[in-house]
Amino acid sequence: MTIVLGEPRVDELGSAVRALREWQYDGSPFQLHPGDIGWFWRFGPEATAAAVRTWSRDGRILAIGLLDGPDLLRLTMAPDVMRDEELARQLADDLAGHHVLPAGKVYLEAIQGALVHDLLTDNGWGVDEPWTPLRRDLTEPVADPGVRIEVVGPDLVSTRTAVQRSAFGGSTFTDDRWHAMAAGLPYADARCLLAFDDNGDAVATVTVWSAGRGKPGAVEPMGVHADHRGHGHGRAITLAGAAVLRELGSSSVVVYTPSANVGAVATYRSAGFEAGPEIRDRRRDA
């Protein structure tokens, strides 16, 4: 049968999330994680469904994309179809035909090693700025972060969102959006954490996402309050997040960040993450 491009309904998002969980494994190329859909869920289930694309054959989902903005598609696929020629050609055709991304300058984050990269190059896609992937094994216990850590519940939501907005200029993360995210399917295996300094001030935050026992978890996002930078709080909250993922059964924790953000790369490395070879999004200028 032919490969079908789909736009799932809200009640079909569970199938996409389950597929993403199945595709995560230690040593895999960096790829779309269930937590990426979970973080997007802050905009609500309808918006999340509208941003997800699936490619299926014989009723099986082969590839999943997340429109993480109007001009960026984040794409991954099942490990056994990375070099599937029919899938690669369908993906390339859908991208060339503007069925997924609009005309003009657009970006594609596609899992490394997939055959579709060869076809994209033939179709005039270039590469964009480098990103640094980082990974930490969770076999051994994680060091104590050295600060007070709290798991965010209803009483700490406003503090959590305030730290987020301070850490990321232009952030629109509100209490309502936290509650929307927390009501999403992926958040069943996620936690939001806050770090507090000796004065009782909330200084950093992280959200961690498990993909299930024995699979890599993800941290997205992690940020330090603008008034409390330069004191090691990014390392502390990252260690706390890694420890929580280990408790949830994750085998490792992964994250990636723009290589130009040398401060973020240094923070993750200080928390025991190892940097892998740089990866680049694909870019089409017209």
Results as ranks from 00 to 15, higher is better:
Ala240Arg: 05
Ala240Lys: 05
Gly241Thr: 01
Gly241Glu: 02
Gly241Trp: 02
Ala243His: 04
Ala243Asp: 09
Val244Ser: 01
Arg246Ile: 07
Glu247Asp: 14
Glu247Ile: 02
Glu247Ala: 08
Glu247Trp: 01
Leu248Phe: 02
Leu248Thr: 03
Gly249Tyr: 02
Gly249Val: 06
Ser250Ile: 01
Ser251Gln: 02
Ser252Tyr: 03
Ser252Gly: 13
Val253Lys: 02
Val253Asn: 04
Val254Arg: 09
Val254His: 07
Val254Trp: 07
Val254Thr: 10
Val255Asp: 05
Val255Cys: 04
Tyr256Cys: 12
Thr257Leu: 10
Thr257Phe: 07
Pro258Trp: 14
Ser259Pro: 00
Ser259Trp: 00
Ala260Arg: 13
Ala260Asn: 10
Asn261Ser: 12
Asn261Val: 11
Val262Asp: 06
Val262Glu: 12
Gly263Ala: 12
Gly263Phe: 10
Gly263Lys: 11
Ala264Tyr: 09
Val265Ser: 06
Val265Leu: 09
Ala266Tyr: 09
Arg269Thr: 15
Ser270Met: 09
Ala271Ser: 08
Ala271Asp: 10
Gly272Phe: 01
Gly272Asn: 02
Phe273Lys: 01
Glu274Met: 09
Glu274Lys: 10
Glu274Ala: 14
Gly276Val: 09
Pro277Ile: 08
Pro277Glu: 15
Ile279His: 05
Arg280Val: 07
Asp281Ile: 13
Asp281Ala: 15
Asp281Cys: 14
Asp281Leu: 15
Arg282Glu: 12
Arg282Gly: 12
Arg282Met: 15
Arg282Lys: 14
Arg282Val: 12
Arg283Pro: 02
Arg283Cys: 13
